[in-house]
Amino acid sequence: MNTQIIAIANQKGGVGKTTTCANLGIGLAQEGKKVLLIDGDPQGSLSISLGYSRPDTLPVTLSDMMGKVLTDTPIQPGEGILHHAEGVDLMPADIQLSGMEVSLVNAMSRETILRQYLDTVKRDYNHILIDCQPSLGMLTVNALAAANRVLIPVQAEYLPAKGLEQLLQTINKVRRQINPKLQIDGIMLTMVDSRTNFAKEISALLRETYGSKIKVFGSEIPHSVRAKEISAEGKSIYAHDPEGKVAAAYKNLTKEVLKIEKQREKCKAGIGR
């Protein structure tokens, strides 16, 4: 199985990474894909939003799995992976992951510990999505080293140019030094308040600044109180408000992500001929 590993990254918090990871993942599952979500944030936001309100009480989390890679301890098939009612699997995280970040600093091949873990599970999945923590630390570098694609959610509220520049530099550095397969799928606008001209200006400005080098997704995720409510419920926007505009936007995003995949496969097939 040619597994697509997508890191959802932005070192700024509050841009909708976790919501995107959950809803894109469940959107892909609805399209018949086998999906594993990886919570790469010690705050455990993804785990909490999928209904595990106290990740620190779970017996196995991502830090345990990365710890096993570090100590060369065998990992059992499916070990610690949770199954969500909406058809996705989850490797949860809790605060122990911040301790793992410290351990990684002195580890051999420290940038590829997450990749080595994913190598043990990826044959079971079409897609693995990694919800990155809001920083450019060792855990995010591990996610970028493990992924073949990056999706960058950006809040349509202010011009995030500085933060974006830093993130793009980090992605380029990882691509040069560790993971030449890494490609940017695109920048996607979240929390867009379409009633204001401001959001339209930001959208136009982003397309102008980056559009020639990086795709800016056509799907913009609207600002919505309902989207905020779901993280307390442990279900996706599709289960919470299936007819709403946020669900429609995530459906469209899912289609765009699959389309990029198809185009790349076509290119590859063309080159391979």
Score class of each variant (00 low, 15 high):
Arg175Phe: 01
Leu118Gly: 04
Pro180Asn: 14
Glu201Val: 07
Asn23Lys: 07
Pro222His: 08
Gly78Pro: 14
Tyr250His: 04
Tyr210His: 06
Lys262Phe: 04
Leu164Asp: 12
Glu261Pro: 00
Gly99Leu: 07
Asn23Gly: 08
Pro55Ala: 04
Val88Asp: 09
Ser53Tyr: 09
Lys262Ser: 11
Cys132Met: 10
Pro77Lys: 11
Leu58Thr: 12
Glu201Trp: 00
Lys12Tyr: 10
Thr20His: 00
Thr19Asp: 06
Arg226Met: 05
Lys255Thr: 13
Thr19His: 01
His240Trp: 14
Phe198Glu: 14
Ile184Ser: 01
Pro180Glu: 15
Lys215Gln: 12
Lys173Pro: 00
Tyr52Val: 06
Met108Val: 12
Ile184Val: 15
Arg175His: 15
Ala107Ile: 06
Tyr210Cys: 05
Ser236Asp: 10
Gly163His: 08
Pro55Glu: 13
Leu114Gly: 04
Gln96Leu: 10
Gln4Asn: 15
Val88Lys: 01
His84Pro: 04
Ala85Met: 09
Leu136Pro: 03
Val105Ala: 14
Ile260Gly: 00
Val60Lys: 07
Asp185Val: 01
Gln155Leu: 06
Ala22Arg: 15
Ser103His: 11
Leu50Glu: 10
Gly211Trp: 09
Leu159Phe: 15
Asp41Val: 13
Ala247Gly: 07
Leu82Val: 11
Pro160Thr: 14
